[in-house]
Computed example of a mutant assay.
Amino acid sequence: MNKYSLSMIFAASLALAACSNDNEPATPDDGPVAAQVNASIEGTMTRASGTEWETDDRIGISTLGNTLTQYENIPYRYDGTKFSPADDAIYYQDAQEQVKFNAYYPFDGSAGIIPTSIEATTSADYQTAEKQSGIDFLFANGAIASKANPTVNFTGDNAFRHCMSQITLTFIEGSNMSFPGSLTAYTLKGLKLSGAFNPQTGIAQPTETASVENLGITLSDVTVNDKRTYTASPVILFPQDMGGKIGIEVTVEGQIYKATLTIPESKSALEAGNNYTWPVTVSKTGMSVGQAEIKDWTPVQGDGTTAMM
């Protein structure tokens, strides 16, 4: 056989091999696929302090159920645009399985071990803009993803939700009253300020044996708008049974005015995820509390009451 015949046979063999490869199905990629995370907060993209997710915020992500992909308390960090692994990523271990996830904020402990309890206090020291995010516990659960669809969407019905309660007071100048320089403080009475958050269940509650305390908030740089009102920064509290009422004292020009906040809808307790807002009118002769509203953090309406000095 001459060299030309050999060359032709070799070329024909290559052509047959090429045809055979074209007809074979593509082999699935068995390489690792990392989870991607998309997260929003129920009802709003904001946290308690009125800010969006902040750079370096960390959430803890865990898988649920009996799957090959099993992770516990894996921190993901917000870089200003998206959440990415703070250290090691979550990788799907089986191409066929659907993996369910939950998550909480703010991250605590270490990767691989999810805490059963994160203790906290809602005292005045933690009601500042700098520290309040540390007690604004959030929880998300039920997001499902897979190797084929790797993005874990903590959005919609699976979005992060607030696990604490919030109170926002709007003070209204009554007759013969001027707030700038004179409205200096208010106190919410009879609260349990110590408690814990369970990042496995999303339940936040006061410590059963905690003593009842008063929460005193100092007000500074008080200004009023054209409606002669001043809205104080919200405070975050553990959901708790208050017997339907919360005592309030407001200090104006050194004088203490007293009233009662009535939890709306005939409810006995402050409930998780609700922002209770009350208008409080202060006059020289006394103070009145208007109807409350529950805003989103979820908005409630309550009966007005009048208080005297």
Rank of each mutant, 00 (worst) to 15 (best):
M1G: 11
N2H: 01
M8Q: 15
M8D: 12
M8N: 14
L16R: 10
S20A: 13
A26H: 07
E42L: 14
G43P: 11
T44A: 08
M45Q: 15
A48E: 15
E52A: 15
E54M: 13
E54H: 03
D57L: 02
I59H: 03
I61A: 02
G65K: 00
L68I: 03
Q70G: 02
Y71H: 01
G80E: 07
F83R: 00
Y92D: 07
Q93T: 03
F101Q: 07
Y104R: 08
D108M: 11
I113F: 00
P115D: 10
T116L: 05
A120H: 02
S123A: 14
A124T: 03
A124R: 02
D125R: 05
A129P: 03
E130V: 09
E130D: 10
G134F: 13
D136F: 04
D136P: 06
F137W: 04
F139T: 06
A140M: 07
N141P: 03
A148F: 09
P150W: 05
T151P: 00
N153W: 09
F154A: 07
G156P: 06
N158R: 01
A159W: 04
R161Y: 13
C163D: 01
S175Y: 14
F179P: 04
F179V: 05
P180Q: 08
L183A: 07
A185Q: 15
Y186A: 10
T187P: 05
K189H: 13
G190M: 10
K192Y: 09
L193V: 02
S194F: 10
A196Q: 09
P199Y: 09
T201R: 05
G202D: 09
I203A: 12
T209L: 14
V212P: 01
E213P: 00
N214G: 04
N214F: 08
L219T: 05
S220W: 07
D221P: 06
A232S: 15
A232W: 09
I236T: 12
L237E: 08
L237M: 06
M242C: 13
E253H: 05
I256T: 13
Y257K: 11
K258V: 12
T260F: 04
S268D: 10
A269V: 00
L270T: 01
A272N: 07
N275P: 05
T277G: 11
V280H: 05
T281K: 12
V282Y: 03
M287I: 09
V289K: 00
G290R: 03
E293S: 13
I294D: 09
Q301W: 11
G302W: 01
G304Q: 11
T305W: 04
T305D: 02
T306S: 07
M309V: 11
